[in-house]
Write a protein that binds this DNA or RNA. Structure first.
Lengths: 209, 209
DNA sequence: TAAAAACTGTACCGCCGGTACAGGAGGGGA
DNA sequence: TCCCCTCCTGTACCGGCGGTACAGTTTTTA
């Protein structure tokens, strides 16, 4: 039972890297088994078909993603009680984590699935949709806590603001990968941080004309 | 000469829609010729291989993209001389244009190429990179004009702020497609508009505690 | 130590990207 | 009118890939 899990994990590791570089359609099972050092029969022992591989890949990715956010923002909450300060700190920590990735962010499987849409079954599309909705709820929860204390300077919809975190991350990944500038993603997260800070933090005194 | 161009365009139209739904790897030449009503030989008369199809597709997409931005922001400039107001108006017009798309945004080819990276040659990757850099220059130019008049409330790097426009658009597309909420993208553009407005517009009087 | 789990090996199918090449329809210019 | 050029069609073929089927073998573990 344990050996099987290990092989399965190795396949998923190889597959994830390949898929993020070439998409699902561009990744062949044959290359996966070559790199994993397994036979075709061995592969199909673990996954019925490519769709099931995708399902396992996506679920694992999302779980890991959630774990990382849990970790970062709970660490931020440990350092300050103020919801705004802890959110801003969380974004800072996230940006640092992203800029520490040696080869830049490898890409987001949610986006990959989004751009392969039509060739997956409903279940995997629903999984993907739920992942994005989970982000919305996660960031929305934190933003609501902030808004209970800090009135936003401009009227904003919480869900839309929460979505903006996801947008900037997803978009930042695309920019970073396309430009081959690993730091762009981290910078985008800091720009978002500036936005949130400006939106909620009381106005600093401005020089009067 | 004219008949050939027409067929070529028809192939590109069919291919673009397919690629945006299934990625390059997920789109087969056979399905393209079936839908276009052409033979395989006919297809290869127009495009040497899939890579050249991708090249033509991407170039056409980028040109069209640039044309749309040119149009929107020049229309905005016609309506006001103030660079900040015209940029904010441009974002509003863009958001309206996006929310008028009947089935939502079909997807961005730049992102598709980004997530298929490894299977394209250097030239197409370079084209993609240049497209993103062109966005940076375009929005950067407008933001610099703004900054000459309006001091930003928070210190920001112009290129990073310009990139944020691209980030929110790319990310908004991914969210909109994944959630199957066509309006999410338009809302994200308006959130970005709120950010820009807040960053540059002089502080409104706040109620003093 | 025997069953269960985790594979290997082999053979096969149909689809797909791509190549090669011969030929044909249709229009435009000499 | 004839020929040439553009724009295709038709046919045949190749190797790679996703996937199936299934028999057999090794490894793990209870």
């Amino acid at each position: 039972m344990r050996k099987g899990e290990e092989t399965r994990t190795r396949i998923l590791d190889v597959a994830e890297a390949a898929v993020l570089q070439k998409g699902f359609g561009g990744t062949s099972i044959e290359e996966l088994i070559a790199e994993t050092g397994i036979t075709k029969s061995g592969f199909f022992y673990h996954f019925r078909d490519k769709n099931e591989l995708a399902k396992a890949l996506l679920n694992r990715y999302i779980e890991n993603d959630e774990r990382i956010y849990d970790e970062i923002f709970s660490r931020a909450r440990d350092l300050t009680d103020d919801p705004l300060q802890s959110f801003l700190l969380g974004l800072k920590l996230l940006s640092e984590l992203l800029s520490d990735l040696p080869n830049g962010h490898p890409g987001c499987l949610v986006a990959t699935v989004c751009y392969y849409e039509r060739l997956f079954d409903r279940e995997i599309q629903e999984t993907n949709r739920n992942a994005v909705l989970a982000w919305r709820r996660r960031f929305g929860r934190m933003l609501r806590d902030i808004m209970e204390i800090y009135p936003p300077r401009e009227p904003v919809n919480v869900d839309q603001l929460a979505d903006m975190v996801s947008s900037v991350l997803e978009g930042g990944i695309v920019l970073s990968k396309t430009l081959k500038e690993p730091n762009t993603l981290a910078e985008q997260v800091l720009m978002l941080r500036t936005f949130v800070k400006m939106l909620f933090l009381p106005v600093a005194e401005m020089p009067r004309a």
